[in-house]
């Protein structure tokens, strides 16, 4: 089962943070169809947030066809975001870790790495589209 967390400094509203965490888990294969999501009560208690926020997130995921609420049983994953690319994740993650070691050795802090990756990805996508 996945655990949720809330980034208090994020500008993303809390319910969308929860939605995004489920999407991410689906993309990386951490969640698969048939898996049960924690109950609204479990999330409200563990993250210490208003249960209506959790409900809103689950409704959004349901609306997107990714999960399904089954009365009396819980909320289950029915969709997947892990495309055929999932198989290559392991290799890419290994290469990324090697690159991260180099970046840290070169003196970059996690924030620097985040910024560098973000801007490079953005530039790459922009060039690709042009």
């Amino acid at each position: 089962m996945i655990g949720f967390r809330l980034d208090g400094r994020s500008n993303v509203v809390p319910y969308l943070q929860l939605v995004e965490q489920v999407r991410r888990a689906l993309r990386t294969g951490l969640l698969e169809p048939g898996d049960r999501l924690p109950t609204v009560r479990e999330v409200a208690e563990s993250v210490s947030i208003n249960p209506n926020t959790v409900l809103k997130a689950y409704r959004q995921l349901e609306h997107e066809g990714l999960v399904e609420g089954r009365p009396g049983q819980g909320t289950f994953v029915v969709g997947s975001l892990a495309g055929p690319s999932l198989a290559s994740h392991a290799v890419l993650r290994r290469e990324l870790r090697a690159w991260l070691r180099k970046a840290r050795a070169a003196g970059l802090e996690p924030e620097d790495i985040d910024a560098l990756f973000g801007t490079t990805l953005h530039a790459f996508e922009t060039e690709g589209a042009a």
Binding site: L6, T39, E42, A44, E45, S48, I49, P51, T53
Partner: peptide
């Protein structure tokens, strides 16, 4: 506060809560 959020989720409960600690109220 986590226990309180769990109780609110468990059943139809309306809460009126006063506090000076505004950060504690955020998201709750």
């Amino acid at each position: 506060l986590s226990e309180l959020m769990g109780e609110v989720a468990a059943r139809e409960l309306t809460v009126l809560l006063s506090s000076h600690l505004i950060a504690d109220l955020e998201h709750r």
